[in-house]
Every structure is written in structure tokens, then in C-alpha cells.
Design a binder for these strands. Sequence first.
DNA 1: TTGAAAGCGATACCAG
DNA 2: CTGGTATCGCTTTCAA
Lengths: 382, 382
Amino acid sequence: MGKPPTTLRDIAKALGTSIGSVHRALHDNPGVSPLTKDRVLQMARTLGYRPNLAARFLSSKKTLRISVNTLQGTTSFWDEVRTGIREAATSILLENVEIEFRTYPGLGEGEEEAFAAAIDDKVDGIITFPSRPQVLRSWIRRASRAVIPVVCVATDAPHSGRLGIVSIDTLASGSIAADLMGRFLGSQQGSIAITLFDMAITEHAEKYAAFENTLRSFYPGLRLLKPIEDHDVETESYSKCRKLFEKYPDLCGVYVTTEASIPVINAARDAKLLERLTIITTDLFPDLVPQIRSGAVAATIYQRPRAQGEIAFRMLHEFLVDGASRSLQVALAPHLVMRGNLDFFLQRQSQESARENKDKNDKKGQEDQPQGASDALTEDFA
Amino acid sequence: MGKPPTTLRDIAKALGTSIGSVHRALHDNPGVSPLTKDRVLQMARTLGYRPNLAARFLSSKKTLRISVNTLQGTTSFWDEVRTGIREAATSILLENVEIEFRTYPGLGEGEEEAFAAAIDDKVDGIITFPSRPQVLRSWIRRASRAVIPVVCVATDAPHSGRLGIVSIDTLASGSIAADLMGRFLGSQQGSIAITLFDMAITEHAEKYAAFENTLRSFYPGLRLLKPIEDHDVETESYSKCRKLFEKYPDLCGVYVTTEASIPVINAARDAKLLERLTIITTDLFPDLVPQIRSGAVAATIYQRPRAQGEIAFRMLHEFLVDGASRSLQVALAPHLVMRGNLDFFLQRQSQESARENKDKNDKKGQEDQPQGASDALTEDFA
DNA sequence: TTGAAAGCGATACCAG
DNA sequence: CTGGTATCGCTTTCAA
């Protein structure tokens, strides 16, 4: 069928030079005359040379070190992202990857330090959550200068020179939220509120715009209010909501675009509005579960942290290994969680952590695992 | 940090035997005395031997051949599944995989022949859509006997000895459909219809049960009618629907669990019911687009064919390479498509086929691709 | 049944 | 700057 692939030898032979020079030329290592380098590069293309990765991994002892800079597990979100990364890393066939987790306590706190540490440590690549994109921008640039590719998760850092970004599609999220809101409310008319962290965050502004557009196009009877910015401060969220609820008695729906839905729900409850409001939230964490179960929250838009982690890892790894990834900008479709399918998602999450624990145990008492055994997982990654 | 991994040499040295014998023992190749084989196996465990895959791939010339047996592209569904498989295959680092597509024209037509051909051809593994599970069962058994692992996509073949299964979670699908139906209808009361291929198909019966359960638990005002079985025959679907529509004037919603939604929509239109009915469908294909756009279809449950293909491939490949997969039963969460986020999904599908075409062109005129270039893709496998 | 050795294709080092 | 070569861990073949 196919002719045997071109090897370094082939190139060397064709050029009447040595395999060593070819290798150096291909990696622009020092010590090659510009002339031979050119000829090698030329010949490599015409022969269609593709490096044999198996051989590469075998001979090169170096292991790729990648730093994962994320928020500490205050919420389950980042734990799940890390799980996804860990999973993707172990599912790589050639296990030459080492992951270093650097976590920081809060939005903007310790973020720069963690990033600096990763650069100083000369890791081969970084996966990061830029909680303050504008602050991290210069750090990412610095990494690029040190030839360390950076992949952003969940939030983008625009104009930073980052290699890639994986996040939830803001347009799809905002639009589906609006569409659901409209359908849920049926013929009802009234005002709709939306809460977000800050309009300065690109993603949030985009979600808002998408929500607004869809609402306006399909449900003209609903009026979208100006966004509530909560800056991830519970009290701010709560009091702004209370104020808003008083001001707009015709309020009939709220869309919470961030994880900060609990204060909103509390405000609604305290204002005796919980029954009357259609609430759509974002993500899935323990405190939200009873709210969904009870019907207080009609639906939540799950941002698939695990899938984000997996894909971010694959993207970075592919780049590190191949020198290129096919997709450097991945926008995932969110999942929709409601009462009916809530258990499905909870089960997934618990299986995840169960597997985590199992892995830890395995490390301790290696022997006793039947090799071929494998649990039947109701699972996803995707 | 970690001590160097155990190699064949280590085992051989520890046992005072040769690396050749160790290798033979580990692969139970012919020509090893039971005694040495035992000792090798023993030593391998205690030393915690893990084969070095890079070395394995490098030295072994053989390439894995896997057969993909699916329906011809009458609908886009199977085309997308195949795309997912192709993508997953090319994203494997060590490209020692060869995929052979065997398609058959219709449900149950040519399916056995295709399977037989794959076995005769001595492929290393099979990914298949068992359109007639009970028929394929014995074939899958036969494959197992020939040590050919089989992974089912979309539909399971129970008790067949298949290695694994990847499909959409029926419980999550049916439940979310019911939950949406209930919310969409708000305070309306009435009958709900459901159509499916045949209750004899496990997946369909499960979807029905999930739909019914959720509806009963949360929306007692809605009454679920007995399922309409369409057997994928348009006329059957159409006429049964017309009859049903006449019989139940209080009908307010229809859930189509299969791709066969067009005849249902037509029947509703012809019965002048389109406006009054809340219709939830399954999957996403060209003819359905205008129906969603117009609002005739409130929502469709997208079964993520591409993700199914990708995961099926990974599952099989992991098994073939490692001798075990971590998850042999994958149930994916479906995506929800409505007017608002419809474009997002359409864009994904078209990007997909655009990339396909690009790939084909690449094969012809290799040279002209800038190495590092990569399109910005909105989304990926998921 | 076993041992020894020749690759696989790239990396990295050493001598010229 | 360049050519040669040992090495990585495994598969496979050939002798013994």
C-alpha cells in the first residue's frame, strides 16, 4: 500500500550528509551551516518527512512538564477541571508528561506569583485560568518569550499571545438560557434580570449580549433589565437583587450567568418571590442541588469543567508534541441540567471522585487489581 | 524522583534468564516452559513491569486494523459518527492504525455480511452499529471467539459479549425531554404522545420509561399516551400520528425519540395542529432546521454522533493497545438544540465537513500547507 | 525450549 | 561545523 515513511537516514543519504547534521538542521540546533540547513529543510519537505514519535519518545529521556494554574477548590468547578486534565494526561499513551498543579486562593490572589513560579521553573507549557485577564496578559507574554505555550481555560486572555483557549461557548449559553426562559414563561410578560461578575469580562458581556439578542428576537414580551454586577461578592449580589426585586414588581425571570446563584436565590426567597420567578443558573455544585430538586431553579447551564480540562490538556500536549494543534480555540456546548436529568450528572460527578480515590489507593497497594477489570461507568468527557 | 521503570532486561536479569524468554512468557507465545513462564509472570508483577509503548511501536511493524461497520449516510448521523472516528484516529500520536469502513444500506440489510467480512479479513477490532441487535449477537460472539473486540455505537447488543458500548444516556434524554415538555406547557393539561422505533429496542423502551417517570413525578397534569411505533417507515409514522391526533383532541405535546420526526411534523401540520403542539425531537439534520427555526419544533435532543464516534474509537484503541480500557460503558449526555443556539450547532457541523474536504485536498497537494497554521475552530468533540 | 543479536528511528555525545 | 555511534526498550529472527 503506502511506501515506507521517510526517516532521517533517508534525508541524510539523499543529501550525502550525516544523520546528525540532518537532526540539527531540523531542530535548528547550533552548529549547522546555513547552507546545509537549507538543503536539509528543503529535502525534508520534498521527501515529506514526518518524525517518528515513537522513536523520539524512546530515545529522548526528557519528560514534558506542564503547570496547571487554577483556583483552589473553593467550588467543585476547578476540582473537576483538574480531574479532566489528570484524566487526559493518563490516557496519553506515551506517559512522558508530568503535571504540576499550582493553585491560588482567590480571584486575582496569588495568580501572578503562581504564573511566575511556573516560568521560573521552566515548565514546558502552562494551562491557566486567567482570573484577571488584563493582569495576566503581560505574564503570558513573558511566557511566550520564554517559548512556553499557554492555554487558557474558562476565560480568555485576549491579546496576550496565549496559544489557545478552551471555554464554554458564550453565545450558545446565553442563547439557550434566553430561549428556555422564554419558553418556560410561555405567554407571561414582564422583566427579566441577569447577573454577572462584571461587564468588563469579555465572556460575561458576550453572554449578556447573546441572552439579550435571543430574548429580543423571539420573546418580545420580555424586557431585559440592565445587568447586575456582583463581583463575586455574596453580599453585593444579595443586596443588589433585593433592591432590584423591589424596583421591578413585574420581574418574572432571572438568569445567573456565574456560579454565584445562591445569594440570588436567597434574595428571592426572602422577598417571597421564589415561587413566582423562573430562575436559570450556571454550573452545578452541592448547594445548588436542592434548589434544582425543589424546582426553585428551573434549569442550570452546566459548563462541563471536566471536558474543559481534558480538552485544554489535549490541546497543549498536541502542540508540545507535534508543534501544532488542529484546534486552538475550542468553544464547548454547555449541558442543560434540570430536575429530570439531575441524577445523571450527580452520578457522573461522584463516579469521578470515586475513581480519583481509587487511583490514590491503587498507588499504595498496587498488587491487588485485576488487570482486565474496568468499572461500567456512566461517563462522558465531552 | 521516581526510580527508572522496570524493563524486560530487569526481569531477565533478576531471573537469570534471557530477554527473549521473558518476552515470550509475557505474551504467552509458544515455546516457553510453563515453569519459566510462571516465574517471569511472577517477577513481572513484583517488579511492577509496564511495557514501554514507544519501544513497542518502534520495533513492531504491525499496524492495527479496525473495521467500522455502520449505516450508509442516508442521514447525517452516521457520517458524523464516522467523522468522529476518523478524527480520533488521526489524533492518536502513534499512527499505526488503519480504519476500514464497511457500510450497509439499511436497517438490517447487509449488516451481517459486513460483519462477516470484517471477521474474515482478520481485523484487530470492530466498531459497529448493531441495527438488529438480536441478529448481530451471534456474530459478535463469533468475533469474540476470534479474539476480535467489538464496540457498539448508539445501540447496544446485550449479552453478545461485546467489549463495550457508547451511546447517549437514555435516561438523561427521556427525562430532560419530559422536563422540558412539562415546563414548556406550563399550566396546560392534556395528553402527550411519544413515538419510537419499537418497544423491543432496549434504548427506546428506556427512553419511554424515563420520559414517563419524569412526566409523572413532576407534571401530573400531563397524561402520557401509549407509544407510537413507527419502525422507521414514514407512512406508518404519518398515518398513526393522524389517527392519534383525531383520537385525542386534548393532545398538547409530542416527543419523537428517533430521527423520524418529519412525518410527525407533517401529520401535525396537515391536522392543523402544528401551532398548538409542543414538539420535541431527536437529532439534527438539514430537514429539521427550518422546523426549529420556525418554532414548530420547540427543541431537539442532539445525540452527539461525532462524540460517540470519537469515544468509541478511543475505547477500542485503548483496549487494543493497553489490554484494558478504563470505561467500557459510556453514556453521554445529549445536547439541547433550540432556536437560540441552533446556529452554533450548524456551524459546528459545517466546519466539520469543511475540515473533511480540506483533508482530502491536503492529500493531493501536500506541499502548500504552512506547518504551524491551524484554524480557529468553534468547538470540538463534545 | 532457550539465548543472542539485529534492527526500529530518533537523540545526544564525542571526536575530528 | 560535521560525521559517526551508543543508546532507548521492545520485537523478531536465527542459532544453539
